[in-house]
Amino acid sequence: MVETVTWQPLDRDALAARLARDIPEGWSVNLGIGIPTLVGNFVPPEREVIFHSENGILGMGPAPAPDKVNRWLINASSQYVTLRPGASYMSHSDSFALVRGGHLDLCVLGAFQVAENGDLANWARSDDDNAPAIGGAMDLAAGAKRIWVVMEHNTRSGDARLLRRCTYPLTAKGCVTRVYTELAVIDVTPAGFAVIDMVPGLTIEALQERTDAPLALP
């Protein structure tokens, strides 16, 4: 039987906007590379959220106009950024002390895989990768109060990314608290994955077909 598609996945911007909706005023937030970086574009400026960048910035603002670039002001993804009023600079050691000391309310990261126990794999697709790029992901995953992952629900070949156990090398154990995909928002609970939102028209059965680990409705 051919499945009738009556639902529409979110595109990258809509996914970033969906996540941004859930960030309350007052939080201090670090955004990882990729779709996580887009999230900043969808937090309205009147909502006071303090963005952190690992290279020593608190209170980061959006990208500057091309003629207003300050070559000394980049974020951890090497992109030009601006400061919001109230911003401050710090050294790398202070910046990571802030991360590792649990002072960030939220870090949004991309991922290859997330397991139902909250394990995160986002730095290597194989145990044989002997010259990887880790950056600050392990510090952020272990240190922030909450880790929200934003990623595509499945790999390009259709494999599940929401698993019973990760098969790729771990970034941190049991750290992920919520996952946003183009299809659904899923909490990681002591009992496993719980679906708290789905795109209109999608059924839990269709979502489960695309997911390795069991999904519950809250």
Binding site: E54, H92, S93, S95, F96, A97, V99, R100, N130, A131, P132, I134, G135, G136, A137, M138, D139, G143
Partner: peptide, 21 residues
Amino acid sequence: FARGGIELEILPQGTMAERMR
């Protein structure tokens, strides 16, 4: 690295900073 001409120690960025601190 591919020809074995350099040794590599990979560290999380914060661990690297904190080890120097």
